[in-house]
């Protein structure tokens, strides 16, 4: 074997085969769920199993959306997600701006507080938050989830926004202020447009978190009409007679927004995460 083909042979074992194995492991569950979602009811349990639907149908999607309640779950999740994103964006831009542009005595304590929140076990929150929101009369009210999710996400998004704002040169803002803008105008006209990629990334992180969160949503919601998607899916899995086709179709429905947002934001992921972990 000459050197070049030896190299190619090496690459087969250090690169090609491992990558193929990695992709099969990662993608197989997705493929199987989609495959199940498009099968007809009888075909799902038929042996031998079919690895592609024999006569693909969208019946399961129709059932999941109209009969099982996924349209309601979807709307609830969307409402909670969008509201949380808006609150998180405003608050973490403000605090991120303060961290990035000012020196002040409260800075270190504030940063330390943000760091501490990362060590709070989420499961510790379920009992006290249930009691707090019960006293406020907000159980099964989307507001309780919106507030909780915003509080949980703000520490991380503040650090993210701090990073993004620090990347915008301070001189741009100062120049605008010399030209007669006040600070808010400078933020609005100079910094904001440059921050849009950062704002998009922050929104995506926050939205995916709210879209996926399960335990708090389960604890703070007890009416089926208020379930978010994860709680609805979990409820359906716990039923005695599970309609597997509709369950798979409902999963695909829940999957689509997360995957689309992820596909858009994944380029920022490695950079953003790296920055956040180091910061």
């Amino acid at each position: 074997m000459n050197r070049k083909s030896q190299q190619k042979f090496d690459r087969l074992f250090t690169l090609n085969i491992p990558i193929l194995a990695m992709l099969i492991f990662t993608l197989f569950p997705l493929y199987w769920t989609i495959n199940t979602a498009f099968k007809q009811e009888g075909e799902i349990v038929q042996r031998p199993l079919s690895y592609l639907p024999v006569s693909p149908t969208i019946d399961n999607f129709v059932t999941a959306w109209t009969n099982v309640g996924f349209s309601t779950y979807f709307k609830n999740s969307l409402l909670v997600g969008v509201c949380t994103v808006l609150i998180v964006l405003v608050l973490s831009t403000l605090s991120g701006y303060a961290l990035s542009r000012y020196k002040f005595k409260g800075k270190r304590p504030f940063l330390l507080m943000l760091l501490c929140t990362q060590f709070i076990p989420r499961s510790m929150l379920i009992i006290p938050l249930f009691i707090i929101f019960k006293n406020m009369g907000l159980i099964s009210n989307p507001l309780s989830l919106i507030i909780t999710y915003a509080a949980v996400e703000i520490p991380f998004t503040t650090v993210l926004m701090n990073g993004f704002i620090s990347n915008v040169p301070r001189e741009l803002e100062e120049a605008a202020m010399i030209d007669g803008c006040n600070r808010l105008q400078a933020i609005r006209h100079v910094i904001f447009p440059l921050l849009i990629p950062g704002i998009v990334a922050t929104s995506v992180f926050t939205f995916i978190y709210t879209w996926n969160e399960f335990l708090l949503a389960l604890m703070l919601t007890n009416q089926q009409g208020r379930f978010t998607l994860p709680v609805g899916l979990s409820y359906m899995m716990g039923e005695f007679n599970i309609n597997y086709g509709a369950l798979a179709a409902g999963s695909v429905i829940a999957l689509i927004p997360a995957i689309i947002l992820f596909a858009y934001a994944q380029k920022h992921l490695v950079n953003g995460m790296g920055g956040a972990v180091k910061g």
Binding site: W211, N212, F214, L229, P230, L233, S234, S251, A254
Partner: peptide, 8 residues
């Protein structure tokens, strides 16, 4: 999400 992964 964990729930979706559970279903899959």
């Amino acid at each position: 999400s964990g729930v979706l992964a559970s279903v899959m």
